[in-house]
Design a binder for these strands. Sequence first.
DNA 1: CTGGTGACAGGAA
DNA 2: TTTCCTGCCACCA
Length: 105
Amino acid sequence: MNLSLRKYDAILATVQSIPAGKVATYGQIATLADLPGRARLVGTVLNKLPQDSGVPWHRVVNAKGEISFRGDGESVTEQEILLTEEGVELSPQGRIRLGEYRWEP
DNA sequence: CTGGTGACAGGAA
DNA sequence: TTTCCTGCCACCA
């Protein structure tokens, strides 16, 4: 078992600790998981996550408050819907108001 | 082993 | 306010 796997677990645990109706940025997750500056790893990890991982990945967005995904919008739309269902309101530009919904541990 | 890729962030203009 | 450039490191061929 790789020690890096423990870091993945820390990332997943942090994402799962995000309360409903709130969102967190990749950098924030990375910092909370003791991986400062490794925001890309958070995205890479989530990208490889299975669908039944039970991780609320839809609450994780980039620093701009936008929903990220390899440029394709289908999954992005699903993420927007999930967030809206939880009470997260989106800006007209399709961006989340981090000042309002950013998770502050 | 080397090189390229990637759900990003932060600073500068 | 947004856009562009750079750095960061795990994973894949």
